[in-house]
Computed example of a mutant assay.
Amino acid sequence: MTKPQCSNHVRRLSIEERLYYGRLSRDQAVTLSPEEKRRYFYSLQVKHKKLLRLEKEITRYISGNTDTTILTLIGPPGAGKSSFIENVLANRLKGTEIGQIPFITVPTPAHGSNKIPWSEMYRKILLAGGEPLVNNKRVTEVTTDKVRVRSNSMGSLSALRDAVTSMLIHRKTMILALDEVLHMLRFGNHPALMDTFKSLADETSCQILLIGSYDLFDLATTYGQVARREEIFYLGRYGSNFDEKGKPDKEANEMDVGEYRTIIGKLQDKWPLEDVPQFSALASDLMDMTLGIVGLLKEFMTQCLVLQIENGGKWNNDFVRRAMKKPYVLKKIRKEVENGEKNMRDEGFFDDTAPSFAGAIHSIRRAA
Rank of each mutant, 00 (worst) to 15 (best):
R38K: 15
M184G: 02
R322G: 04
T302C: 15
A110N: 10
A281F: 07
E347N: 12
A368Y: 08
N311P: 12
T140K: 13
M184Q: 05
K198I: 03
V30W: 01
R366S: 09
Y260N: 05
I15G: 11
D218L: 10
Q308N: 10
L157I: 11
D249I: 00
N135M: 08
L210G: 00
K332N: 14
K298D: 08
H190Q: 08
L44R: 11
R53K: 10
E57I: 00
S356D: 14
S280V: 07
W118N: 02
A220Y: 00
L291G: 08
S156H: 06
P77Y: 11
L235K: 00
E251K: 12
T290R: 04
R186A: 09
L209Q: 01
K247G: 10
G340K: 01
K266T: 07
R138W: 06
D179S: 09
M194C: 06
I211S: 00
L32S: 01
I116C: 00
M167E: 05
A177M: 03
R186P: 02
T221L: 02
R237E: 06
L200I: 11
D346I: 03
V306L: 11
V306M: 07
A360T: 12
G265E: 09
K342I: 15
P355T: 07
I62Y: 00
L32A: 04
R26I: 07
T262R: 08
E230Q: 06
I15L: 15
C6R: 10
L93K: 04
Q268N: 09
K247T: 14
I85Y: 03
D145A: 14
G258P: 11
R345F: 03
E97T: 14
A368D: 08
L52I: 07
E141M: 15
V149W: 09
Y234A: 01
G75T: 01
T173H: 02
S153I: 11
R123C: 02
R171P: 03
I208F: 01
A159V: 08
V164P: 01
N317P: 11
D256W: 00
F41E: 04
D145L: 12
K326W: 14
E57T: 07
Q45D: 12
K250R: 15
S363N: 10
R334A: 14
K332H: 13
S205F: 01
S205G: 05
